[in-house]
Amino acid sequence: MKLKNTKKLRLYIFKSNKHIYAYLIDDEKQKIITSSSTVSTEIRNKIKSLKNCATAQIVGTHMGVKIKQLGIKEIIFDRGKHLYHGQVKAVAEATRKEGIIF
């Protein structure tokens, strides 16, 4: 499934007390296109603890791979109310390492 939008999609980061979530959102259609989190089965098998920077990096890498598979190169990074530090920074840097620009 290749998306051919000229506008940028938004990567939104949400953190709960136990988990970290990353959503790729199309604001125009108000839909979540893809997501990745510590709850998803692909990641749950790879991690040892639920919420730390190493786990956030795995979530970011997984999200970057999914975004590349959709044919998207540029997005908008939305950290919500969180500072660009720690887990949020780990997700962002891991996504960038997969070649996603924001």
Rank of each mutant, 00 (worst) to 15 (best):
N5F: 13
Y21W: 10
Y84L: 15
V91H: 00
R10F: 11
V88C: 08
H62N: 13
I100S: 01
D27M: 10
I13F: 06
T55F: 10
E93C: 04
V59D: 02
S16G: 08
L3Y: 08
D78Q: 13
T55A: 15
V59P: 00
S37W: 06
Q30L: 13
K68M: 15
K31P: 00
K73C: 13
E98N: 11
K66D: 02
A54L: 13
I20H: 02
I75L: 11
V91F: 02
K18I: 09
A22M: 09
V39K: 06
L11T: 00
M63Y: 02
R96W: 08
A22N: 02
M1A: 11
K29E: 14
D26V: 05
V39Y: 04
G60S: 09
L70D: 07
K89N: 15
E28V: 03
M1Q: 05
S49A: 06
I13D: 00
C53N: 15
K2R: 12
A56L: 09
S35D: 11
K89W: 13
D27Y: 09
K97I: 02
G86S: 08
H82D: 09
Q69H: 12
N17M: 03
Y23M: 07
L3P: 01
A56D: 08
V39L: 12
K73S: 15
A22C: 15
I75R: 02
G64D: 09
T41P: 05
H62W: 04
G80A: 10
V65D: 03
Q57L: 12
S35K: 03
H82F: 15
I33Q: 04
E93R: 06
Y84F: 10
T34Y: 06
I67G: 00
Y21E: 04
K73G: 12
T61D: 04
I33L: 14
E93V: 07
L24T: 01
M63N: 03
R96N: 11
G64S: 12
V91C: 03
H19Y: 05
A90V: 14
V59M: 14
G80H: 04
V91S: 02
I13Y: 00
Y23W: 03
Y12Q: 08
R79E: 03
R44W: 03
L3I: 13
Q87V: 02
E93A: 04
Q69W: 04
Q69E: 12
I67M: 01
T41S: 15
V65L: 12
K66A: 14
L3Q: 05
H19P: 01
G71R: 10
N17P: 00
I100Q: 00
K29G: 01
Y23C: 03
H82P: 01
K46F: 03
L3K: 06
I47W: 10
I43P: 05
Q87D: 02
I33W: 09
E42C: 11
V88H: 01
K18N: 09
T61F: 06
T61Y: 04
F102Q: 10
G99D: 08
I67P: 00
S36C: 12
V65E: 11
K18W: 04
H85G: 13
I32S: 08
K15E: 05
S40H: 14
S35Q: 12
I67T: 00
S36N: 05
I58F: 09
H19M: 06
R79K: 15
Q87E: 06
L11V: 15
K81F: 13
K51H: 07
V65F: 08
K89I: 13
Q87S: 06
